[in-house]
């Protein structure tokens, strides 16, 4: 099972920006303990959702050949709590890319409400971790993941590829 914290993409402009949706539901067991009397979506999981939105945006630029891992959270500011029933929009905007790394800036919104501002840096591990050996197979964008991705991406994007 993969660790998915976004439900689907609704917009995907290669190399520019991507918008993914996350529906928060009380069927997610972790919310039962976080917290019992007042369930709220953990901020760390929203950061993971943004990392997935941004990581896929960045991975697509080099055709999912790089192993793209979250390396640094430059900024993560949260303004509102997120409750079961909320629908979140993760918008990641491409910022910069080099052989070793790439960066994005993102916002999370729920309706008209700004939930968070997040910026992050991804490492292209094969080019950045000199001397450290990683498996040759791409364990980030593996086959299972790519299969999932075809269901994820908006129709227009699939048609153009």
């Amino acid at each position: 099972m993969r660790w998915f914290w976004i439900d689907k993409f609704i917009e995907f402009e290669p190399g520019k920006r991507a918008v993914a949706v996350k529906n928060v539901t009380l069927a997610e067991e972790h919310l039962h303990d976080h917290y019992q009397a007042y369930p709220v979506m953990p901020e760390s999981l929203m950061i993971e959702g943004m990392a997935q939105t941004g990581g896929i945006l960045v991975g697509q630029i080099r055709n999912f050949k790089e192993k793209v891992l979250l390396a640094k959270i430059g900024k993560a500011k949260f303004f509102e709590m997120v409750r079961p029933g909320d629908q979140l929009y993760y918008e990641a905007e491409f910022d910069n890319i080099a052989d070793e790394a790439a960066s994005i800036k993102g916002t999370i919104t729920c309706g008209d409400t700004l939930i968070a501002e997040i910026s992050m840096l991804f490492s292209h591990v094969d080019n950045n971790m000199a001397g450290v050996e990683f498996p040759e197979e791409n364990f980030v964008f593996n086959e299972q993941f790519m299969n999932q991705l075809t269901h994820y991406l908006p129709k227009e994007y699939k048609q153009s590829n």
């Binding site: 640094k72 910069n96 960066s103 840096l121 950045n128």
Partner: peptide, 14 residues
């Protein structure tokens, strides 16, 4: 740390 150097490079470029 190492990843910060890339972050710094990106920021200075911009």
């Amino acid at each position: 740390e190492s990843i910060d150097f890339l972050d710094i490079v990106f920021r200075l470029e911009k």
